[in-house]
Design a protein around this nucleic acid. Structure first.
Length: 285
DNA sequence: TACCAGGAGATCC
DNA sequence: GGATCTCATGGT
């Protein structure tokens, strides 16, 4: 077991809690995951991010954690944009992952009308049907490929809690098994990339944007869900619907829209969580 | 019990 | 092209 270290600023808890990955599992003082069949243990200390893996391929993990995205330069581009900077300040070490395409597509197919805890539970259930591996003494499960998901059949996916979304996962698995070209999504014009994803059954604009953002590394994609709608509506009062908010965000933040969106999502949820905590303890927010 | 959750498809007008 | 219903399912 070897290790690779990155000194770049990162907040792994924010990455985990920000609803972009459902394939990490807490282990000791860090997390285990198995992207692209590479079992790895992540944790952070005073010196940055430490990754322990059998094959700690530096280039692979630098890309996985999207470390080439310069957060300091982003702050420069957002100079004077108070709402965006406030969201960034709520999670200074947030990073956007570039995750494997198929498992990300499955995760966000499961996300529709669902909550993060249940998505995570379903993904864990399906991953347990994949390959068992080991990362730094912790077990790590490689999410099955399309053939593995097809083998589960609808009944197996319903057992995982997929509910009415089970046929969507099967259709996605079939498409990928038959050669759906996901490699080109990173470079295509945004609307065309989105349209290709929306052509898949169960994939709408929001799920497509999540896949573009969290798997294809497209930080110009800006998924708008209930939380982002709440955050963006006051900023763009004239925008019509979620599509209107999406376009307005892209016009304002351009190639950084996806990152700003994710910081807003995380800070909104943290605020809501803090509010619930204060009410539960009888305090006044 | 009713409502909500990182929505999308079907149907109606 | 909007508005509305429905889809599983567990938590609050």
């Amino acid at each position: 077991m070897a290790a690779v270290r990155f000194a770049d600023p990162i907040d792994l808890a924010a990455v985990y809690e920000s609803g972009q990955t459902f394939c990490w599992e807490r282990a000791g003082d860090g997390w285990v995951a198995c992207p692209e069949g590479r079992p790895a243990f992540f944790r952070q200390d005073g010196q940055g991010l430490l990754i322990q893996a059998d094959d700690p391929d530096e280039a692979f993990f630098r890309a996985y954690f999207h470390l080439d995205y310069d957060l300091l330069a982003l702050r420069g581009r957002l100079c004077g944009d108070e709402p965006a900077l406030a969201a960034l300040n709520a999670c200074p070490g947030l990073r956007l992952l570039r995750q494997p395409f198929f498992e990300t597509l499955c995760a966000f197919l499961l996300s529709q009308n669902n909550n993060i805890a249940r998505i995570r539970a379903s993904m864990r259930h399906i991953a347990r049907k994949g390959r068992k591996m080991e990362a730094f003494g912790h077990e790590a499960w490689a999410f099955p490929g399309p053939e593995g998901v097809l083998a589960l059949q609808e009944s197996g996916l319903r057992e995982a809690g997929a509910g009415y979304r089970a046929p969507y996962l099967l259709a996605a698995a079939r498409a990928v098994a038959e050669g759906f070209d996901h490699a080109s999504l990173a470079a295509l014009p945004r609307e065309e990339a989105r349209a290709r994803l929306v052509a898949l059954r169960g994939v709408g604009p929001k799920v497509a944007d999540c896949v573009l953002l969290f798997a294809c590394g497209r930080l110009d994609a800006c998924p708008v869900d209930v939380w982002i709608e709440r955050a963006l509506s006051p900023l763009f009062p004239r925008a019509k619907g979620r599509e209107g908010l999406c376009r307005a965000a892209q016009e304002r933040w351009g190639a950084d829209a996806g990152y700003v969106q994710q910081a807003l999502f995380y800070s909104q949820r943290m605020q809501a969580q803090a509010g619930r905590g204060a009410r539960a303890s009888g305090g006044r927010a």
